[in-house]
Amino acid sequence: MIVANDNSCKGIVKNALLYKNPIFVSGMVIAPVVVMANNFFDAVTLVIAFSLITFFTLLMSSFVPKNIVYTVRIILYTIIGALVYVPSVIFLKYLMPEGVEALGIFFPLFITSSFIISRSETIFFLETKGKMFLDIIFCIIGYDAAVLLFAAIREILAFGTICGNIIGMPVEIAALQNPFGGFILLGLIAAVFRSILLFIKRVRQK
């Protein structure tokens, strides 16, 4: 795997956005992306819901003392997630009721996402609170950007539209609207993303 090995702020940002991108490289929280991110508008609801729950859950989880045993810590992380979900769902239901309806069971599932479970432990090992904050912010930005890019490509290919506007594609691949289409497209984009990272690395080495 290509990674930025330094633990500097620049390295943390590079890893979060590129080398350990949660969607295209690490494969975290891909279920809602594969099933729900069919178009750009649904993807916007998805990233807002994800960002709200993940940011506040990780922020509050960072105050859980390290000396508590892991068995109890993991329950505390998910309880914090469930508590953060309450104001998040009320807020989003007021702001975008149709979007929340469309998300269905995937909204509360962010509470036990692999992202929260793994990051809430990883951030313990970062040296300062500043770096921890930077890591959380840029991991969320990396996830959001990847989801929006994926949804935009999927909407163009599956519906021939972008943000609902017809762009006149010669062929529409309707199968990409289904979860299996989501899996295949995500796999292809992940491969292209890895090729781009490899190309950048080779150019820098030369």
Partner: peptide, 9 residues
């Protein structure tokens, strides 16, 4: 990871 996603698809 990428080929696993395609396989799952």
């Amino acid at each position: 990871y990428p080929i696993m996603l395609i396989y799952l698809g």
